[in-house]
Design a protein around this nucleic acid. Structure first.
Lengths: 140, 140
DNA sequence: ATTATTGCAAAGACTTTGCAACTCC
DNA sequence: GGAGTTGCAAAGTCTTTGCAATAAT
C-alpha cells in the first residue's frame, strides 16, 4: 500500500495529513484483519514508538466520521476497525475471534431487490449487513 | 409474562431458580427493547433494591451460555440483551440507539436456499443475521 | 498565523474477579 | 448438606477527556 495513496484519501476528505493518521490507516490496511485499537497501537509502535493510545482512538474516530474506515461490531463489546471498501459482509467464526470479509455481489443484488419489493413500513433502509456465523471446517 | 413460565425455562435448562434470575429474565422480556445490563439493573431495583450489578452480569452470562437470551452487538461497544426467540434480524436506527426486531420468515427461507446453493468454501454456516441500518421516516 | 492534532495522565464507562455468606435442590 | 449463587468491593479492560505543547496548511 503506497503512502501517497493514503495521503490522498486524507486530503480528499480535507483532513490534515499527519504521520499518525497515515500510520493508523496503513496499519488497518496491512493488518487486514479487523484489528482492535490495541492491535493497531502494537503494529504502529514498531515505527512510531511514541504514539499515544488516546491519539489512536481520536484518529479512529475522525476516520470513522469521515467514512475512511468502519467499525465492526463484535460479540464481546470490543470495537474493531476495517478500511472502508465495497459493501461487504462478515463471517464470524463462532469458536475464535476471527472475522473475515465476505464479498458477494449476487447476494447484494438479491437483498436489494428483496427489500425494494418488501419495504419496512416507516423505515428507510440505508444499508444491510450480514453476519454469517459458523465454523471453519478445514485447517485455516 | 407469567413467572411460572420463566421458572420453567430455568428448570428446563437445569439451572437453579433464584429470584435474581427470574427478575432478570422478566426485565429483559418486559423491557423488550434490547436493554443494556444497566437498564436491567434499573428496572429490577424497584422490586429488588439490593441486587448487585455484578450479579446481573453473572446471571446474564449464564443465561447467554444456556441460550435463554442473546447478546446484541451495538456500534458503540455496549452489550445489549434480548430474550431468545425465533430467528430474527435487527433494525438499527442510524440516528439513535434504538434497535428493533425484524421477523421475516420469507427472508429467512430466501437466505437459506441461497446459501444452500452457494456454499462458502471451508465454512459451515450456523446462523445468519441481518443488520438493517437506516432511519425511521415517521414519528415513532 | 491559525487552527487542528498530538501526547500525557487522569478520569470514565462498562465488565469481571475473588471470596465469604447465603440459597436452592 | 453440598454445590451453586449472591453481594460487595476491588480490580480490570477498553475508551474518553482536558489541556499544554506541537505540527500542519
Amino acid at each position: 500500500m503506497k503512502i501517497t495513496e493514503i495521503t490522498q484519501w486524507l486530503t480528499d476528505k480535507k483532513l490534515k495529513v499527519t504521520p499518525q493518521r497515515v500510520a493508523i490507516l496503513e496499519a488497518i490496511i496491512c493488518l487486514n484483519n479487523h484489528p482492535t485499537a490495541d492491535a493497531i497501537v502494537e503494529y504502529i509502535r514498531d515505527k512510531n514508538p511514541n504514539i499515544a493510545v488516546a491519539t489512536v482512538y481520536k484518529v479512529l474516530d475522525v476516520l470513522v466520521e469521515n467514512g475512511l474506515i468502519h467499525k465492526v461490531k463484535t460479540e464481546i463489546g470490543l470495537m474493531r476497525y476495517e478500511a472502508a471498501s465495497e459493501n461487504h459482509h462478515h463471517i464470524y467464526c463462532s469458536d475464535s475471534d476471527r472475522i473475515d470479509d465476505y464479498f458477494d455481489e449476487e447476494l447484494n443484488q438479491l437483498l436489494d431487490s428483496y427489500f425494494r419489493n418488501k419495504r419496512i413500513p416507516g423505515f428507510d433502509i440505508e444499508n444491510i449487513k450480514l453476519q454469517i456465523i459458523g465454523k471453519y471446517n478445514t485447517n485455516h
